[in-house]
Structures are given as C-alpha cells and as structure tokens.
C-alpha cells in the first residue's frame, strides 16, 4: 500500500514538473524569445489560461504527500523552512505577474511584470532544482525524524551541509537549463512567426547546456548518494528509466531541428518524467535519506499514514484523478492550436 502511494505521489510531482515546468520555462526564456511588448503579450497568452491549473498540481501533490506520508511532510517542510518560504514568495510574485500584467495599459506597468515573471520563474526553477538536490543528497535527520538546514555552510555536501552546496547548486542550474529547454519548446509549439523561430533557436542552444549539465549532475549524484547505485545494482531493470531519458532528450533535439514542435515538446516532457522516475527509483524505498546514520532515513515504512486511511484514500483518489484528467483534456483541447498576436485575452 505504501509503495502504491509512493508512486502515486511521484506521478503527481512528475505531472507538476511537466505542466508547471513549461510555465517556468516560458518565464525563463521570456526576454530571449520576445523582443517587443506585443510579443511578450503572446508569451503570456501561451500560459495565461492554464498556468493556474498547472500550479494546482503542486498543491494537490503536496496535499497527497501530506495525506500519505505525514511524517515526511512535517519533517521536510519544517527542515527546509527558509527556502520553502522563499519559494512561496516567488510563487506569489509569479502568480501576480501573470494575473495583473494585462490589467493596465502603460509603458511602465507591462515591463514591471515582465521582469517579475522572468525573475520569479528562473529563481523558482533553481530553488526546485536545489530542493531535489537536497533530497538526493540527504539531510541531517535526528532520532525524532527532524532537522533544520541553514541556507549554506561550507558549500560542500558533507556531514553538516546547508541548503546550498556545490552539488545542490549544480542541481539548481541544471533544472534551470532543463526547464528553459522545456519552456522554449512549449513557446515554439504555441506560437507562430518570429517568436516561434526564436524559441526554437533558444531551445537548440540550451539543449547543449542541458546535455553537459545532465552528465555532470548524474556523475555527481552517484558520488554524493551511494544509495542510487545500490538500487540500480539490486534491480537492474531500473536502467530502463535513465535510458528512456537519454533517448527522449536526443529525440527532443532532433524533432526541434526538424520543426516538429509537438513531438519535441512531448519528448521533453518524457525526458522530465523519466529523469524524475529514475531519481525516485534510485531512492526507493527511502523518501528522505539521512546523510549520517542510514537508520535515521525516512522511508515509506516509517513515514506513511496508517493502513486504513491509505486504503480509504485510494477509493476517492482514483475517481478524483480520473475527473482531473478529464478537466485537463477539456482545458487543453479548448486551448489547442497556436496563439496569435491579435487574439490575446
């Protein structure tokens, strides 16, 4: 039962990264792909009707994580107190930038929110990347399953790490590049003309950065967290996930080069999913490793809610997710096709 919920929560987080990931990506490449005010309006209208629904995946995944693994939620949210609060502030900035930008027609109003949108998106990508880095590296859990991390210590992933060290910064920068690629491919998919051409060019260049950073991060991850290697050695069929990720990344570049925007964006989504599943596979059954005594790690066994609650949850969760899938199909179908300069809301 705990294993089922581990993978359900993982799937929700994957959905969050794929959906809100392109919103962040659009923000990161905002100033690179759109030169004029009208063009920036178009970038906003590629995510305007869907970003809020995308962000709900974070809330729903967070809520489901809380429901299934209360001890994990309590420990990690309080331990990562400072960066999470900053994530909240950035999410506020990102949200109001998107929602309030088009309310006032003024030469000072639009650039203000363009900048807010771009900065918040880029920083959020880095923060989420660093958060993932922290989870992979492990944290100094005590016997009651609690910890508190300062923002930085000596910048090395040793026994008394901070939120930021060279490894988590590398993870943050990698996720920035990965989401920039994802967002550029989304903008290319949803726009036409100049913006599409620029978005494709940005995607082509960022792709090389992703390739280099992903290799560095993968090597670093296996060194920082020995658990990963142990998992892949114990269950070698798991290698299929990193291989799918590599294939998807290559496909994204080829499809982008061949002007097949939809295939390129889907390949990028598959890449995100396969990478995250690889990480989850590598950590399983651990949900938050201890960086000291491995006995102190939070696992699906010691962090989960009681069996009755998990069973009842499955009864409402499955229909709930089917409904959600239906809403998303509806929302994205009614928003299909490219957005033009003239039909912005």
């Amino acid at each position: 039962m705990e294993t089922i919920w581990f993978w359900l929560v993982a799937c929700m987080l994957v959905a969050y990264v794929i959906f809100d990931g392109f919103d962040f990506g659009a923000g990161i490449v905002h100033f690179l792909v759109a030169r004029t005010d009208a063009e920036r309006c178009v970038v906003f209208s590629t995510i305007g009707p869907v970003w809020d629904g995308n962000e709900v995946w974070l809330l729903a995944a967070g809520g489901t994580l809380y429901f299934a693994f209360p001890a994990l939620y309590a420990s990690s949210f309080s331990g990562f107190y400072l960066p999470l609060m900053m994530v909240l502030w950035l999410l506020i900035l990102r949200g109001v930038s998107i929602e309030f930008r088009n309310h006032v027609e003024s030469p000072v109003w639009h650039p203000l929110w363009d900048a807010g949108f771009a900065i918040a998106s880029a920083l959020l990508a880095i923060f989420f990347g660093a958060a993932l880095g922290n989870v992979v590296r492990g944290v100094p859990l005590d016997a009651s399953g609690e910890f508190f991390l300062p923002l930085w210590t000596d910048w090395t992933p040793g026994q008394s790490p901070g939120i930021l060290d060279w490894y988590t910064v590398l993870a943050g920068v990698t996720v920035l590049a990965v989401l920039a690629l994802h967002g550029a491919l989304w903008v290319a998919l949803k726009t036409a003309g100049e913006i599409e051409v620029r978005a494709r060019r940005v995607a082509g260049r960022v792709w090389w950065g992703v390739l280099v950073l992903m290799n560095l991060l993968t090597v670093a991850s296996f060194r920082v967290q020995p658990r990963l290697q142990a998992s892949f050695v114990a269950r070698p069929w798991g290698w299929v996930f990193p291989f799918v990720a590599i294939a998807a990344l290559l496909t994204a570049a080829v499809m982008n080069y061949r002007l097949r925007e939809r295939a390129a964006f889907l390949a990028s989504s598959l890449f995100l999913a396969a990478m995250l599943v690889s990480v989850a596979f590598g950590l399983y059954p651990c949900v938050l490793p201890s960086n000291g005594d491995p006995e102190l790690s939070l696992t699906i066994a010691n962090a989960s809610a009681a069996p009755y609650g998990l069973r009842v949850g499955l009864v409402w969760f499955i229909p709930g997710m089917l409904l959600t899938a239906a809403y998303f199909v509806y929302a994205y179908r009614s928003f299909a096709g490219k957005v033009g300069v003239e039909e912005r809301p």
């Binding site: 709900v56 809520g63 489901t64 429901f67 209360p70 939620y73 409402w316 709930g320 997710m321």
Partner: peptide
Amino acid sequence: FAKSAGGVIGQTLAMEGVFSFFL
C-alpha cells in the same frame, strides 16, 4: 501538529486539492 494529525486531516486537505482546486 502536522505529523501527529496528518493521518486524519491529510484526508480532507488532499481531497480539497484533488476535488476542488482542479475543478
């Protein structure tokens, strides 16, 4: 509080996300 009560109120909070926020 979250750790102690999560087994109960995790239900309602997760249901809010799944059933109402998406809708």
